[in-house]
Design a protein around this nucleic acid. Structure first.
Length: 377
RNA sequence: GUGAGUGUAGCUCAGUUGGUAGAGUCCCAGAUUGUGGCUCUGGUUGCCGUGGGUUCAAGUCCCAUCACUCACC
């Protein structure tokens, strides 16, 4: 097997790429969707369920695992892979987004970010170096740099200064773990809010730092789909051509296809797993709110086009009952289904890019998932 | 049998000195984008136990009656 970080593009369809990324725990075929396993578990499901659903690579979280059970404890258990029983690739988010979402209980300085634990209120400090050290202890295959995810609505001045801080932090992260110093990869994160030129500026500052991949951060923070797509279409094609591109925290089926169309290779999002727990299921026919009374006596499968365990074995009536009764099995079956749907979407996209049919695939999903506020919605 | 208390939304209950009813929950529907199984946003629902009376006006006051609960015989 090639060396970790090797990124090979094997097909293209417009700006979209079909590629593979080598990591220390296996090769990831892209475009890829990464299920989110924040605290060392994808809520309600087992590694076996993840494999069955088609998961190649998981996302874990630095902030959460640092607070509990602690990265050093995980290191003593042999690293995150062994600890959670997942032998495939893992990407760890740096905690930058938590810094963003913890607004009110954190302060950002040049040195890093001080914050209070959401668990017990205790004070902690994340510097770029600290975040790298934690991710080193966790042993993830891909580390993310510490960044500041700027809130939606931030003005140009703040956004411009923030992006430069993110750049300085990115440089410190790379210095703390130089390229090639181990099997772990490190991705830089482009910020710049909703100003196309600031996005370009952020990229210009980061692109010469020897990262193995680049991410687009700061999207899906409250903007409209149109605003997000404008920035996405502007910046994604400008990211370094020969390295993997990762769109953080996105998104809906259409967001993902729009990203792929713009040249993005990797995605993660809590949407399939969180919505599964809240009864919103993604199907080939569009969203299904399984709690709806109309499914009370519906003996048909959730999605006849889906081959997952939930769809092949149980009826809508049963899935609705489990949800309404708050049965634990509801979370598991719904999560298995939604993950299968998103992972299938990525698999279909890989095939479509190989066949030059991405536009047709997107048109199909556009029909089932119209964008709010746009024609057809 | 006697005494006391309680009867208001499917459920648990608020309803000021009388001015034709509210909350929580449930139910119905929607949201959820680098995750707290959370949360948020809308919406439906009432012979105010029953029958009389007083009053311009009664869920509120008076009488009777029924049901339930508790205590005592």
């Amino acid at each position: 097997m090639s060396r970790p970080g090797t990124f090979t593009i094997t097909a293209r369809d417009g700006l979209a790429r079909r590629a593979s990324l080598v990591t220390a725990h296996g090769v990831v075929q892209t475009p890829a969707f990464m299920p989110v396993g924040t605290v060392g578990s994808v809520k309600s499901v087992c590694p076996r369920d993840l494999k069955d659903a088609g998961t190649q690579i998981l996302l874990g979280n630095t902030y959460h695992l640092y607070l509990r059970p602690g990265d050093e404890l995980v290191a003593r258990r042999g690293g995150l892979h062994r600890f959670m029983g997942w032998d495939g690739p893992i990407l760890t988010d740096s905690g930058g987004f938590q810094v963003f979402s913890l607004q009110g209980i954190r302060t950002i300085t040049e040195e890093g970010v001080e914050f209070r634990s959401h668990i017990d209120g205790s004070k902690h400090f994340f510097s770029p170096e600290k975040v790298v050290s934690i991710q080193h202890n966790l042993g993830s295959d891909i580390m993310m740099v510490l960044d500041e995810c700027v809130a939606y609505g931030a003005d140009r001045d703040y956004t411009a200064r923030s992006l430069e801080l993110t750049t300085r932090w990115a440089r410190r992260c790379r210095e703390a773990y130089p390229a090639g110093s181990g099997g772990q990869l490190m991705f830089g994160i482009v910020q710049g809010g909703f100003f196309p030129d600031l996005r370009e500026e952020s990229l210009a500052q980061l692109r010469d730092i020897p990262f193995e991949g680049f991410a687009i951060g700061g999207l899906s923070v409250g903007e409209s789909p149109t605003q997000m797509y404008d920035i996405l279409r502007h910046i994604a094609p400008r990211l370094p051509e020969g390295k993997p591109r990762y769109l953080m925290g996105v998104g809906t089926p259409l967001d993902i296809l729009t990203g792929i169309e713009s040249g993005v290779d990797m995605f993660d999002c809590v949407l399939p797993t969180r919505n599964a727990r809240n009864g919103t299921l993604f199907t080939s026919q569009g969203r299904v709110n399984i709690k709806r009374a109309e499914y009370k006596e519906d003996d048909g499968p959730l999605d006849p086009a889906c081959g997952c365990y939930a769809c092949t074995r149980f009826s809508r009536a049963y899935l609705r009952h489990l949800y309404v009764a708050r049965e634990l099995l509801s979370y598991r079956l719904n999560t298995i289904h939604n993950l299968t749907f998103f992972l299938d979407l990525a698999a279909q996209a890989r095939e479509a890019v190989e066949q030059g049919r991405l536009a047709q695939l997107k048109a199909r999903y556009e029909a089932a998932y119209p964008v709010a506020g746009e024609p057809g919605a």
